[in-house]
Design a protein around this nucleic acid. Structure first.
Lengths: 138, 138
DNA sequence: TTAATATATGCGCCAAGACGAATATAATGG
DNA sequence: CCATTATATTCGTCTTGGCGCATATATTAA
């Protein structure tokens, strides 16, 4: 099980702009809270708004930022917009995001957000917690 | 400056400011190249300057930023300042940084920087590569 | 002391981006 | 059609932080 140390021929190609965008997206606390929430599954804007307790335009603008960064995807359902996590196709970026979700998921803010969301959508907190934990391990 | 908060009996939680600073630090390409270079070991400012091919004040200011972020440490040796990586004490931040170093280390820019550094310090490229690869696996 | 080298910092300018407040757009129902 | 609800965007303002350029500081040697 010798490991190759002369690796240069087929280097993985993480695009610098991909990392640039990723880290800028992760540089905001509100966006990290949103991503941590979406780790539990698809959530509609009004519930993100309700769970985080921040102004709706603020949520909307951060969601737009995350959409442009390719970290979330949206689905319209009548009046509601449901957002979900979208893991980067790039392997390196994906690993970084997973590590981030794991770290952020343990924050008290994330736990509190999930708790509030649990009340809003009538899903048991333990289910949301389990889904969030599961998300970063796959 | 406190880094960790202890909420429940034995549950360590990442302090938000730690992640905030980490991601801001990682949001710059030059800083990521510097960190990737330091993954090979301690490097003096003039060699970082030489390897990246960027103006010395630019390097110096980014190093100051990384120092304030707690990601690098400096050691003076006569005229020279040697910088080295300093892994965050926070477990979550540490995992994120490791994943980042692994992704960045595979970039062609990082490989090229190590190659130039190899010429400057007369250390075989394969040694630098091996050290960099080793750094993010521990 | 002065000179030389290595490193750090100050200044001016500029772009990204966060926020509050107001408003615009989209979809549905009456 | 109009009203309502959900979501998105625009505007003005402010802060952060990047860069180039010049200069300041630190250390060593002559």
């Amino acid at each position: 099980m010798a490991r190759d140390i002369y690796v240069k021929a087929n280097m993985k190609i993480t695009d610098p702009p991909v990392l640039e965008q990723l880290f800028k997206a992760l540089s905001d606390d509100t966006r990290r809270r949103i991503l941590a929430l979406l780790a539990s599954g698809e959530v509609c804007v009004c519930n993100i708004h309700g769970a985080l307790g921040l102004p709706q335009p603020t949520i909307s603008r951060h969601l737009a930022y995350l959409r442009k960064s390719g970290l979330v995807a949206a689905r319209r359902d009548g009046l509601w917009m449901h957002y979900r996590l979208q893991m980067p196709t790039d392997a390196g970026a994906s690993e970084i995001l997973k590590a981030t979700l794991e770290a952020v998921g343990d924050l008290s803010a994330a736990g509190s957000d999930r708790k509030t969301l649990s009340g809003l959508v009538a899903i048991p907190l333990r289910v949301l917690n389990a889904a969030a934990t599961d998300c970063c391990r796959r």
